[in-house]
């Protein structure tokens, strides 16, 4: 559990903060997403919750879109559709966040930690609402290319990713030791 969340946390960190040396991007965003996918696979491998598997697939999709964008950018292609890449990624990311937190809620419920599960539930609800608002705003901002709206969208997107990293970081720290075994989780998931 701990190592899975740790990988997700660092993957998200690398997606958010790119490291550039001059013109070269040392770690492109899709590598960060692949690390997140690795973390989700670890979680699925350990507890076999279908939510983690779904989250894993959505993150692989994000990595694919991100890789496509990276190659297009590298080749200097400026397709119109690339403008909406952040929005498309955000929509898939929305699914990833939902499945990740759903899986985590399920895990804590099965482990008898109702309080933790309830905490994540309420976080997820507000998070999703802010996320939807931010994404719709971002879409409009990108369409009319209004600098003020774009700035608000970027701030919101940054706050949202930091918020998600904080949730993941807390989940990572809650239980460094597994609360339930894989056999138990498989039974509960069925």
């Amino acid at each position: 559990m701990y190592s899975g969340y740790r990988q997700i946390f660092w993957g998200l960190f690398l997606c958010t903060f790119h490291i550039n040396i001059g013109l070269i991007q040392v770690i492109p965003a899709f590598i960060g997403w692949l690390i997140v996918a690795g973390g989700l696979y670890t979680l699925y491998d350990a507890y076999a919750y279908t939510s983690f598997r779904k989250a894993h697939y959505t993150v692989i999709a994000i990595a694919g879109i991100s890789l496509f964008g990276f190659i297009a950018d590298f080749l200097g292609k400026r397709y119109e559709i690339l403008t909406y890449m952040p929005i498309l990624i955000a929509i898939v990311e929305f699914l990833f966040i939902y499945y990740l937190l759903e899986g985590s809620i399920q895990y804590f419920l099965d482990a008898g930690e109702e309080a933790v599960a309830a905490g994540i539930k309420s976080n997820l609800q507000i998070y999703m609402l802010v996320f939807i608002f931010s994404n719709i705003l971002g879409c409009i901002a990108l369409t009319i290319f209004d600098q003020t709206l774009l700035f608000i969208y970027m701030c919101l997107a940054f706050i949202l990713i930091l918020w998600l990293m904080r949730i993941v970081s807390r989940l990572k720290k809650i239980h460094q030791e597994p609360l339930i075994t894989m056999q138990e989780s498989e039974i509960n998931d069925k």
Partner: peptide, 16 residues
């Protein structure tokens, strides 16, 4: 949560 996810997904995709 599931309903919020579904509605959000439809709204965001439609807007895009």
């Amino acid at each position: 949560h599931h309903n919020i996810m579904k509605i959000g997904l439809v709204l965001m995709t439609l807007t895009m």
